[in-house]
């Protein structure tokens, strides 16, 4: 794979290689953007709104998004609902089973920072981006179908802006914490909780 990564650099040096690359970018990005196959990861209330978005009135199919059951054939994971600590290892496992150009939409307040379950709840993981890198957060509890469609369109614009061969920068950066060599998994801006404060079920430690 890494040979392919070097090609864009060489092509740029050819006289009008740049135009060729942007043309290639345009075609690939538009193809990827307009045919995102999503894997419904319905946990709670947001799953019902996701189904309502997939139904007749607001239709995902108009954006070219079909529902695929297996993680192997999907390239967008919509985490819809509250993520509990017992469920966290499974989400991570599924994320890793997806083929590479993969994106994550975190739908609903619970996936951003625990939402209504931030206080007084011992079993809810405060934010999905603690275990998987998230591209688009859709606010709302549950977010309206229009908000979710808006999130998908925002993701499409994000994809159209990509460059072939460039490393994608993802929000929720992951540094390795030297003490526990566990990925720090903490958003620099919130910085609310350090990993050793959260007692993760140990399968999660094995996996991450």
């Amino acid at each position: 794979m890494d040979l392919i990564k070097k090609i864009p650099a060489y092509v740029e040096r050819i006289p009008n290689g740049g135009i060729l690359m942007t043309g290639l970018d345009w075609v690939l990005n538009n193809a990827k953007a307009s045919s995102m196959w999503y894997m419904l990861f319905g946990l709670a209330c947001c799953a019902i709104e996701l189904m309502a978005t997939g139904a007749s009135r607001y239709d995902f199919d108009r954006l070219g998004m079909i529902f695929r059951a297996t993680p192997r054939q999907t390239d967008l994971m919509i985490v819809a609902g509250t993520l509990t600590l017992k469920m966290a290892p499974r989400v991570k496992l599924l994320y890793e089973q997806m083929p590479d150009p993969k994106y994550v939409i975190a739908m609903g307040g619970c996936t951003m920072h625990g939402g209504p379950f931030y206080h007084d709840s011992y079993s809810v993981l405060k934010g999905v981006d603690k275990i998987i890198p998230v591209d688009i957060h859709v606010a709302g509890c549950p977010p309206r179908p229009e908000a979710l469609m808006n999130g998908c369109i925002a993701l499409q614009d994000l994809i159209r802006g990509e460059k072939v061969g460039r490393k994608r920068d993802r929000p929720g950066l992951r540094h390795i914490d030297p003490a526990t060599n566990l990925p720090l998994l903490v958003r620099p801006d919130t910085g609310l909780i350090r990993p050793n404060q959260i007692i993760m079920p140990d399968q999660l430690r094995v996996l991450s």
């Binding site: 709670a44 007084d120 809810v124």
Partner: peptide, 10 residues
């Protein structure tokens, strides 16, 4: 138990 959000504790 995969969706136990401790509503009674809250």
């Amino acid at each position: 138990g995969y969706l136990h959000r401790s509503i009674e504790k809250m």
